[in-house]
Design a protein around this nucleic acid. Structure first.
Length: 400
DNA sequence: TCTGGGGTCCTAGGACCC
DNA sequence: TCTGGGGTCCTAGGACCC
């Protein structure tokens, strides 16, 4: 089964507002969750059904949305709230199986195999789950049922909101093949355009196309994948949280105004390094690849990465690499976004020799190792302060 | 009153190795 | 008197997902 919260950010905000005594349910009027144009994040993140009827789409800019729906009520995103609501949903779902894969904050797969004996046929269980979510948590979900992840996902995307769909293999031709190619999970704007050039417009067209043609048109991996998916083929397992580890830890910020100087950029790089470093250490891991991403005022994005000789976890090491990357890559253009991410992640204790043999400036190993130990201790202390008193309890003077 | 932030995966080219 | 073929690793860029 695949389960998807209808207009998650908006639904959860609506439930919270009602809990706080709001007179109006924002789900029943044209409304949206949107960022703030002042901070240059003014896009639609979620919309109500009445807003959707007026043509408002996710990722649309706020002025565009207001033109379509002048009275549109908008509310800022509340990610901390969403995390809590998401947690409650997953708790409820955990009663039905312990094999749950969280795909995003509002979507997951349940491997219902074996649970029939306790909760009945999947269609019956889905109905129960959906009703319980509505009654106990206060919002609606879409659910899809089939024999693999791809088909259940395609099923839950069908008619919204508050629907349960099946898409078993024998239903593929009737229910999935007539859909536009773009609606196949994994086919985006670019692939859809390429497929259209070959006269392939529906999922059925892809399913019946020559696999060799697809592989040459879309590159081998993508060609093979879309052909398999269009035919309902997918054998990927539902991965429990214990079996899953993220491969990247990253943060990026769109700045309130363009960054034009190296000095200003370094402040952001330091703040970003601190945030990814904290998350890295909290996850108990170290990283040996640092990536810096920049987006200029023309919306052109570019990144540089650097693989280190040894994995690191200290903010100072991350910042050192990130600022060097920035210096090497910056084209002098006005920047609207800066990002720092860490990859090449491994468990901290797996690395016996975590200390670099050579110093910063080719100094003797011992000195470098001592300063690194001091750094680690300093940062551990800061992490503890943040854990106990909040993320803003301690920060660098330069970031104030 | 213009365009977010968090990720995953694939490809191509170059350095390098035998 | 003219330049192979098997690999691995690193990096930059891009497609795709929510």
């Amino acid at each position: 089964m695949h389960i998807d919260v209808n207009s998650a950010f908006l639904s959860w905000t609506a439930v919270e507002m009602l809990k706080d005594g709001a007179a109006e349910d924002i789900r029943l009027v044209p409304s949206a969750i949107a960022g703030d144009p002042k901070s240059r994040s003014g896009i639609i993140l979620a919309k109500s059904e009445p807003a959707k009827k007026r043509g408002i789409k996710t990722a649309m800019t706020l002025p565009e949305a207001r033109r379509l729906s002048p009275g549109l009520k908008t509310f800022p995103p509340r990610h901390d709230l969403y995390k809590i609501y998401s947690g409650h949903l997953f708790e409820l779902l955990s009663e039905y199986t312990d094999v749950i894969e969280r795909f995003s904050i509002d979507e997951c797969w349940l491997d219902y195999t074996g649970s029939e004996k306790i909760f009945g046929a999947p269609e019956e269980a889905a109905k129960k789950i959906s009703q319980r979510v509505k009654r106990e948590l206060g919002y609606t979900v879409n659910m899809g049922i089939s024999s693999n992840k791809l088909l259940s996902k395609m099923a839950s995307e069908m008619e919204k909101p508050d629907h349960i769909h099946t898409l078993y293999p024998h239903e593929i031709q009737e229910k999935m093949w007539p859909l536009p190619a773009r609606e196949l999970f994994g086919v985006g704007r670019s692939s859809a355009a390429t497929l259209a050039r070959f006269g392939l417009h529906t999922i059925g067209d892809i399913a019946c196309a020559d696999p060799t043609l697809l592989r040459s048109a879309l590159k081998p991996a993508m060609g093979r994948m879309v052909h398999e998916r269009a035919n309902g083929i997918d054998d990927s397992p539902v991965l429990k949280a214990e079996e899953y580890e993220s491969k990247v830890i990253g943060h990026s910020d769109t700045t309130p105004s363009d960054v034009k100087t190296e000095e200003e950029a370094f402040h952001y790089i330091l703040s970003l390094s601190e945030r990814v470093g904290l998350r890295l250490r909290e996850s108990g891991r170290r990283a040996d690849v640092v990536t810096v991403e920049l987006k200029n005022s023309a919306f052109k994005t570019y990144r540089h990465q650097k693989k280190l000789l040894a994995p690191v976890s200290a903010t100072s090491d991350i910042y050192k690499t990130a600022s060097a990357l920035f210096r090497e890559m910056w084209r002098g253009d006005d920047l609207r976004l800066l990002g720092v991410s860490l990859s090449g992640l491994r468990n901290a204790n797996e690395e016996e020799s975590q200390l670099s043999l050579f110093g910063d400036f080719g100094a003797f190993g011992a000195e470098q190792n001592e300063s690194q130990k001091t750094n680690d201790t300093l940062e551990e202390a800061q992490d503890m302060i943040r854990k106990r008193f909040g993320k803003d309890a301690i920060t660098r003077g330069t970031l104030l």
